[in-house]
Amino acid sequence: MQVPKELMYTDEHEWIKVDGERAVIGITDYAQHNLGDIVFVEVPELHAQVASGDAIAVVESVKAVSSIYTPVGGTIVEINDALEESPELLNQEPYEQFIAIIEMDDPSDLDDLMTPEEYEKFCQAQG
């Protein structure tokens, strides 16, 4: 299982990359592996205002469905259209494919996120 060092993580298995005022959000290798073959991604609504903890997207595999929660509030400024046509990209390159880019209202939302080390332990605890 890959857990890149330069990212931050949530307990819902999302990764976050901070780029100035912007947070890039995707799902982790652990998440894609547990979901199995991803068959559909309901991409977020562009320009939507979201609050921290909101479900912004849905990822479906054949036998499971998972909501993607944003750990940060703000405005969705970019979405990944490619996932609509090719949801399997999330299986193939989970850390190359983002779900949404959010312009953050309050960077302190990031304070609760896990470090790569913490996240790795968290996953091990989940088995």
Binding site: V39, S61, V62, K63, A64
Partner: peptide, 8 residues
Amino acid sequence: QAREQHIR
């Protein structure tokens, strides 16, 4: 089937 109650 991901839409359905036994999964959601």
